[in-house]
């Protein structure tokens, strides 16, 4: 099953609030991935983001699923700028997640 989140509808053109992103990750995204859904984040109309937002949502998500993120999420309609935020958050989240896994 696939579930699509339209980020502009949810958070506006500028994704800024890290607290809101963190709550959304926990309440909406993780709840759906735990049921086996593939999550698609659609960034149509999103023009900017903060590092706080991208780390709280995508960095933390990647940290929790460093080995199987590809089975759980996809990103759609990303401008090069938004793609930069996502690549950075995800790659560093995966790095943190793998480090944590090695230390356990």
């Amino acid at each position: 099953m696939t579930h699509e989140f339209f980020m502009k509808e949810l958070f506006g053109c500028f994704l800024a609030d890290g607290d809101q992103a963190n709550a959304f990750r926990f309440n909406e995204v993780e709840a759906k991935t735990s049921l086996g859904s593939l999550i698609v984040f659609d960034f149509e109309g999103v023009t900017n983001m903060t590092e706080s937002f991208s780390n709280a949502l995508f960095g933390n998500l990647a940290e929790d699923h460093p080995f199987d993120l590809i089975d759980r999420v996809r990103f759609k309609n990303c401008s090069p700028l938004i793609r930069g935020f996502l690549v950075s958050a995800v790659s560093h989240g995966i790095e943190r997640g793998k480090r944590l896994a090695r230390s356990e």
């Binding site: 990103f75 759609k76 090069p80 690549v87 790659s91």
Partner: peptide, 27 residues
Amino acid sequence: DYDAMLKEARRKVKGLPEEESDANLFL
């Protein structure tokens, strides 16, 4: 170029190279 400025800042701040190994994540 805002995107280039962010990339430069991330390189300095986060240190790790940003690998495009996650290309399959993007539709």
